[in-house]
Amino acid sequence: MERRKFLKNVSASTALVGLGGLSLQSCSLSAKKKVTILHTNDVHSHIDAFPQDHSQFPSLGGLAKRASLVDQIRKENPNTLLFDAGDIFQGTPYFNFYGGELEFKLMSMLKYDAATIGNHDFDNGIEGLYAQLPHATFELINANYDFKNTVLDSHVKPYKTYLVDGIKIGVYGVGIELNGLVTKALYKETLYLNPYEVAVDTEKLLKETEQCDIIVCLSHLGYQYQNTQKPYDLELASKTRHTDLIIGGHTHTFLDKPTIAKNAASRNVLVNQVGCFGINLGRIDFYFDDRKNLAASGASITI
């Protein structure tokens, strides 16, 4: 927020100084904008790259390499946000030894903007997650867990908005049903609310009240399930009408390319997930201009 204010002030004083050269040109220059959204999911404490002789992911992943890539993208486009769709914890001894401290510290160093909560993020109990919050400079976002009667009360926001280069981005989170997946002793009095209903309410608020230009859902529901009543991302896409992008997790789904799905208003939206263990980084670029967008199906999507 502070950085944004500073940037705004700088551009105002630039306008003052360069008054002689001011013309309508400066308006049309600012008219074309680009917002980049980067994302990971299910990193599961995979801080180090996989060894060269690994049968499945030889030499892939690694947080220090992800950091370089994110840095490079931020240099190309400072209007970049970085998100994670949950299951940050559990999977390597880093978690067993340090309880998630290192994961949160490193994500903060990479300047993650927000993450949603996965089922494994409860593996050291809700207190274990709470204990690591001081190490996170990013926001934990979830709208369908009611933490009122837990230590996380008021520490997890249902949504957050970001103003980047005059474009307002609203981000909300949804999580999977914990009963049957996580021991009750770990999630305690956390209440699970229907993610579809919560998503529809939250995106409406982000669109109508918050007037967001882009609405992103961080989901730990899973990409798709067959023969089950469990909610999933593709179904979520078809039930929402303002969400532009669903960043998914939980099912460790490696997609050949991001999925284009039709939402409740028959508009094309994106559903993406980038596998697991920090093997990939998802990148979505949103381009804005001042022309009226005529296509009924929404913006054109290139995958």
Binding site: L255, K257, G282, I284, D285, F286, S300, I303
Partner: peptide
């Protein structure tokens, strides 16, 4: 400002 184009990659 209107959203004109989205480009997604992995």
């Amino acid at each position: 400002q209107s959203l004109s184009e989205i480009e997604a990659r992995q």
